[in-house]
Each structure stands twice: as C-alpha cells, then as structure tokens.
Design a protein around this nucleic acid. Structure first.
Length: 259
DNA sequence: AATGACTACAACCGCCTTGAT
DNA sequence: AATCAAGGCGGTTGTAGTCAT
C-alpha cells in the first residue's frame, strides 16, 4: 500500500502565494502557534496543503528570517560547513541564524558553485578541479579534512589564495550552533521545538538585524529590498491584537479545543 | 522595441525519519 | 515489532526578472 498524499490535492491552489494568503497564514500562526500543519490550511481558511503552508512559513514568512544576499562571512561559513556536512542544507542552515535551508541551497547552486568553479575549486569535493578525484571514492560526505589540500596547479592568480582562505577549517561541534542566539526556529528542522513546553516569545526571536524593509549591502544594485512591499505587511498591526506595545506571543502548542 | 538566453529563487515533489499506537 | 501519520529534508522545476543581441 502506497504512501498517502499529504493532503487532498483536489481543489487546492498551487503556485506563488498571494499577499492575502500570506496574511491569513501569518495571522493564524501568530495567533495559534505552529503545529499540526495538516490542519492549518483548513483552520486558516487557505486552499493550500499543509506542507505548502509549512514551507511558506519556514522559508519566507517567519519573522526571524534575514533577507537579502548572504554576507561574505555567511558565504564562507556555508562553504566551510558544506565541506564538512555535504548537501545537508538543514544542518548548514542551523548554523546560520535567520537563514533557511532552501535559501542556502539556492545560494549555493546559483552563486557559490559558480564562484568556486571560477576559483578552480570543485564545489562538491572542495578540492582543486584539476586534481583528478577518484570517482570510486565518495567525496560528498566524507571529506572532512580539507586542510591537506595539495597545491593547486591552477595558475589563476586569485585561485590559490582564495581557495586557501575559503577552505579553512572550522570544527563544527555536532548539533551545536555557532551563534548562541540561534534558536531552534532558525531551521525548518525544528521538530524538537514542537514538543517543547516553553513557549517561544516574540521578543526571543532574533530580530536585531531584521527589518521588514531594509537596505541591502552595497554590492547589491537593488538598494532597498522590500521584504513585504505591500503596506499590509509593513507592520504587525493587522495581526493578532497586541496593543500598547504588547507583543504577540508565539505559542508552541495550540489552544485546547482549537482542533 | 522585440526577443531569446540566462539567472535567481520560490515552490513543489517524493523519499526519509520519527513518534505514536 | 509492525504500521501509520505527520513533519522534515534534499533535489528539482517553474517562472519572473534581467541582460544581451
């Protein structure tokens, strides 16, 4: 017997989310917390499958997300982590607070891969491209020691220096974050948090660098990036009631009787 | 100005893992 | 121990925006 689909697909909407759908989802989660994704669309009045709601929230709507390009430091960190962890994007993301596995994966595929190749580094092995790698040797998840790289024969001037810079060694303690502020919500792999009885409070979320509309770094020609360009999302007033500066509380568990 | 190629990233798909029963 | 449901994860696709011709 095959696996059942995560939801009834008939009549469900697919494709890009509308601002109205975003609003509904945010409002619902801020009010009720995140749990039981399968039930979310129905209760929130969305014609989406629960999985889609979870993804939308995790990858785009979560208030503790950073937006914009990865900084140089983040990029190097991703490279280092990838050298140690391989394509385990959620693990990598757990070391970069405010970044999602999807975002890092996309950035890797579109930017970093290219950059590494340009520098003469194989993005999969993190070794100089011209050094023939034995295809019989697994290289994705078992190349934890990159400090013994042979000198790259690539004569690109920037190659060796940059490669040496990037292929540094950061020892990552398993299951630990480099950022003490990194909450479990920094990754979609926060399944454990759902069983945590301590509610996540709004102010506990990592907001310092977070702005709904903010300027990107100077390397970006776009200047201002509107995270949520529409007015409806430019503040939280439309969300659950939090008057007089009172902030909404993220709840880990749903109110009794909600489901 | 038109259009085709390229790029970036949001979203989807299907398999895997985990926890409950 | 076996089964099932739900969530998580990584790979892939779709599409809007940008650039080059």
């Amino acid at each position: 017997m095959g696996r059942q689909p995560c939801c009834e697909k008939v009549g469900l909407k697919k494709g890009p989310w509308t601002s109205e759908e975003d609003k509904k989802l945010i409002n619902f989660i801020l009010t009720n917390g995140q749990c039981c994704w399968r039930a979310v669309p129905k209760l929130a009045g969305l014609l989406r499958c629960g999985k889609s709601c979870r993804l939308r929230w995790t990858n785009y709507l979560r208030p503790d997300l950073k937006r914009g390009l990865l900084s140089d430091f983040e990029e190097k960190l991703v490279i280092d982590l990838h050298a140690q962890l391989g394509n385990r994007w959620s693990k990598i993301a757990s070391h970069l607070p405010g970044r999602t596995d999807n975002e890092i994966k996309n950035h890797w595929n579109t930017h970093i891969k290219k950059k590494l190749r340009k520098m003469g580094i194989d993005p999969q092995t993190h070794k100089p491209i011209s050094v023939s790698t034995d295809p019989s040797q697994p290289n994705l998840h078992s190349h934890h020691n990159t400090e013994t790289l042979p000198d790259s024969p690539i004569d690109t001037t920037e190659t060796n220096e940059s490669a040496q810079t990037i292929i540094s060694t950061i020892s990552i303690e398993p299951e630990t974050s480099l950022n003490p502020c990194a909450s479990s919500s920094s990754s979609s792999s926060s399944s454990s948090s759902s069983s945590n009885s301590n509610p996540i409070r709004f102010e506990d979320l990592e907001f310092p660098d977070f702005e709904w509309v903010y300027s990107n770094d100077t390397s970006n020609n776009d200047n201002d990036i509107g995270f949520w360009e529409d007015d409806y999302l430019s503040n939280w007033d439309f969300l659950v009631g939090h008057e007089d500066g009172e902030v909404p509380i993220f709840q880990e568990s749903w109110p009794c009787g909600l489901i």
